[in-house]
Design a protein around this nucleic acid. Structure first.
Lengths: 253, 253
DNA sequence: TGTTGACATTAACGTAACGTAAAGGTGTAA
DNA sequence: TTACACCTTTACGTTACGTTAATGTCAACA
């Protein structure tokens, strides 16, 4: 339960020098100093260090962290909750970056076109701040929205040929789906053909293919009424559920 | 299509000084210099800057980035794919951190106990490297696994009282579920009671409650055969599906 | 046409968060 | 006691810019 600089450093994945520096700037003082002058840290310090590293991870500078953790009104639970929200926002931004990379790969291979502005999507801190403002009230509702937006986003900057191929595919999916529903069997050859066409379509949208994601999107078609309406209107009621079932079987998920 | 320092800076979300510095260290030279000495950047430079910022986001130092992008064998698509994998690994680590924060909140409120070692889970770079090794072959398979493991992880460090309350809840869920299935109606009072008990149980596991996540877990009970088997064995075949339906109605998702 | 104001330039010093090296003391296992 | 891995302080070095100063440029408006 007692740690020297090196032991605590190893535990937390930071250097001994960093701990001495934190002592120096008064952000994390050891619990006591041994008779020979060694810094000795205890349980309380371990917890405080954890908090400090949480904030550091967020890119907060040490001066601000010091103010936060040494404040007399420092409410660690409240602070953790705020921290939690910020991490969620950060993950959202990271997801944007990931999508950007996927898009850039597709672009480099000539499948889609990207505007200069889009090329930097996901980098800007501003986006994080915008997210934070929204996050106060409703985190998850928005998160669900994003998944939907993701699907539309890829349409915007395609080359003309790809766009034509895609709309062709969409119609084929609808036709095959209509035929397949007459058999009533999502596992049958027509149902599986529909799922396969949908796979091709998804692959074009995303620049790659991934079973797990495919299965998730299929579930989304059932969960999100906008998608449900799209298929049910264009084919026949129950089409979204039928397509989901076919894709589930197709992906084996 | 032509940018000065400030315009490009605004586009990319970085300062003009940064662009001058990148010119100075030879990492991003302008396409040409205007008659009055202004730096003028073109399309090629925009793309290169994007690549540079991708790497910077990953914490790569500029010296290394310079080597990478100025290398004659620099394959941007290959580099982007590697980059993509690293971002996925980073997201995984971020998810660990988020789980850690959630756990810490629960701990601070006295619901569970955490070992010192656990307190720093998610910080260590080592974990990223381990992930990268695994990522080479099968990314998504493992990602699916994690969601399952997440559910088990919280059991390990609970206090005795909480553990007892939780096992009590589990049994209540199973009993209520059995009764509810006799009515055949997931929307009925018994079905909704089962969903509510399950909500309490989930809340204990996670330290907080979230409708979206609840609905997702319910879907997982159907998708993952280990969970399906658990409920179907203990109650009766079809129990997992019944519980999912009840929770879907309960959460309104 | 002159002036304003937002841009651009180079030069140079400042900074945060440590890394690293020097010079020395401490603890313990062989 | 000797080796060796730890600890200490002091102090200078490093990265990736921020900031300030002193000065030049361009488009627009009185």
């Amino acid at each position: 339960m007692e740690y020297t600089v090196q032991k605590l450093g190893k535990l937390a994945g930071i250097s001994a020098r960093t701990l001495r520096y934190y002592d120096e700037i008064g952000i994390l003082k050891p619990a006591r100093i041994s008779s020979s002058g060694y810094r000795i840290y205890g349980k309380k310090e371990v917890d405080l260090l954890q908090q400090i590293l949480f904030y550091r991870e967020l890119g907060v500078d040490l001066e601000s962290i010091k103010k936060i953790v040494t404040s007399p009104s420092f409410d660690s639970v409240k602070s953790l909750r705020e921290h939690h929200l910020k991490l969620l926002a950060k993950r959202e931004q990271l997801d944007k970056l990931i999508r950007n990379v996927e898009k850039t790969i597709a672009m480099t291979e000539g499948r889609i076109e990207m505007s200069d502005k889009e090329k930097f999507e996901g980098f800007k801190q501003k986006l994080i701040e915008e997210n934070e403002a929204k996050y106060g009230k409703e985190i998850r509702e928005k998160y669900g929205e994003d998944v939907v937006e993701k699907n539309y986003a890829y349409f915007k900057n395609m080359s003309k040929e790809d766009y034509d191929r895609m709309t062709g595919l969409s119609e084929q999916i609808l036709e095959t789906l209509a035929e397949a529903m007459k058999t009533g069997d999502p596992a049958g050859p027509l149902g599986q053909k529909a799922a396969d066409l949908h796979k091709q379509w998804i692959s074009m949208c995303w620049g790659h293919y991934d079973k797990e994601a495919h299965a998730n999107v299929a579930q989304m078609y059932v969960d999100d009424e906008r998608f449900t309406a799209y298929y049910d209107d264009r084919v026949r009621p129950g089409a979204a559920v039928f397509l989901r079932d076919a894709i589930r079987i197709y992906t084996g998920k």
